[in-house]
């Protein structure tokens, strides 16, 4: 059974976790701070999207669609405010991801590192796709879809998620 990492389970078998209010505010804030601070010194870090990873983590752990989409929307809008682009681009993308991740968290077990890597890489692609479509079609921003770069970024974010989720697991509490 140990090699069957992704298994469809009944809703009752999946444990739902919650977080204290301090963690719920502090972790996204820290993620946004690191995301804004580090790329100014090392631009390569911008390939990672820590706010996205935090959104996915909270969504799949809480397993509440409403909480997931609201977490994604708030983190995305704050991230938008740090850019010079229109506010709502990251908001929409992360709302979709938050909703999707929480929906997936209800259906499958995402405690395994392999699952986490795949789920995060997949949602990173979803995030980039939504961002690309909205920016190009609503705002008319001339964006290029770079396949190699996007796939590499998805993989790197997946690897980072494995490490980050293991750290954040320490803060979750069973309901």
């Amino acid at each position: 059974m140990s090699d069957m990492t992704i298994v469809r389970t009944s809703r009752e078998e999946i444990e739902v976790y919650r977080f204290g209010p301090v963690i719920s505010v502090l972790v996204p804030l820290l993620a946004l701070l690191i995301q804004a601070f580090v790329p100014a010194r090392w631009h390569g870090f911008a390939v990672l999207d820590l706010p996205l990873l935090v959104t996915i983590f909270f969504a799949v752990t809480r397993r509440s669609q409403m909480a997931g989409l609201m977490t994604g929307a708030i983190i995305g809008l704050v991230q938008d405010a740090l850019t010079h682009q229109a506010i709502g681009l990251y908001g929409i993308a992360k709302t979709v991801v938050g909703y999707g991740a929480s929906s997936l968290g209800v259906k499958i077990d995402v405690e395994n590192p392999g699952t986490r890597l795949l789920v995060t890489a997949g949602f990173h692609l979803v995030h980039q796709t939504v961002y690309f479509v909205v920016a190009r079609n609503i705002l008319g921003v001339a964006l290029e879809w770079l396949w190699a770069r996007t796939l590499l970024a998805a993989l790197l974010n997946g690897v980072a998620a494995v490490v980050l989720f293991a750290v954040l697991d320490r803060f979750k509490r069973s309901t």
């Binding site: 989409l69 506010i87 709502g88 909703y99 909205v134």
Partner: peptide
């Protein structure tokens, strides 16, 4: 479909916000 409705509502609000900013 409470959650799906909320998702649509939040997305709609943000799209409208983008349209205003354009």
């Amino acid at each position: 479909y409470r959650n799906a409705s909320l998702l649509m509502l939040v997305l709609f609000a943000q799209v409208m916000g983008l349209a205003v900013q354009v």
